[in-house]
Computed example of a mutant assay.
Amino acid sequence: MPHANRKKSKIFVKRAYENATPEDGYRVLVDRLWPRGLSKTTLELDQWERDLAPSTELRTWFGHDPTRWDVFQQRYRSELASEEMQERMRHLLAEANGRTITLVYGAKDEEHNQAIVLQGVLSGLIGG
Rank of each mutant, 00 (worst) to 15 (best):
Ser9Cys: 04
Lys10Leu: 11
Val13Arg: 09
Lys14Tyr: 01
Arg15Asn: 07
Ala16Asp: 02
Tyr17Gly: 06
Ala20Pro: 01
Ala20Thr: 00
Ala20Lys: 02
Glu23Val: 09
Glu23Leu: 12
Asp24Met: 10
Tyr26Gln: 01
Val28Ala: 11
Val28Ser: 10
Leu29Lys: 13
Val30Met: 09
Val30Leu: 11
Val30Gln: 10
Val30Ile: 10
Val30Asp: 08
Val30Cys: 14
Asp31Pro: 12
Arg32Tyr: 10
Arg32Pro: 09
Leu33Gln: 14
Pro35Met: 07
Arg36Ile: 00
Arg36Cys: 02
Gly37Cys: 12
Gly37Glu: 07
Leu38Ala: 10
Ser39Asn: 12
Lys40Thr: 04
Thr41Cys: 06
Thr41Asn: 15
Leu43Met: 15
Leu43Ala: 12
Glu44Arg: 15
Asp46Ile: 06
Asp46Gly: 08
Trp48Ser: 15
Arg50Ile: 05
Asp51Ser: 10
Asp51Leu: 11
Leu52Gln: 03
Ala53Ile: 04
Pro54Gly: 14
Thr56Ile: 13
Thr56Arg: 13
Thr56Leu: 13
Arg59Glu: 00
Trp61Lys: 06
Phe62Glu: 00
Phe62Trp: 07
His64Ser: 07
Asp65Phe: 12
Thr67Leu: 13
Thr67His: 15
Thr67Tyr: 10
Val71Tyr: 11
Phe72Cys: 01
Phe72His: 02
Gln73Leu: 00
Gln73Asp: 00
Gln74Ile: 03
Arg75Lys: 15
Ser78Ala: 15
Ala81Gln: 07
Ala81Tyr: 04
Ser82Leu: 00
Glu83Trp: 04
Gln86Thr: 06
Glu87Cys: 08
Met89Asp: 05
Arg90Ser: 13
His91Ser: 14
His91Phe: 10
His91Pro: 03
Leu93Asn: 09
Ala94Pro: 02
Ala94Gly: 10
Ala94Cys: 06
Glu95Ile: 05
Glu95Asp: 13
Glu95Phe: 06
Glu95Cys: 12
Ala96Gly: 09
Ala96His: 04
Asn97Cys: 04
Asn97Glu: 04
Arg99Lys: 12
Thr100Pro: 12
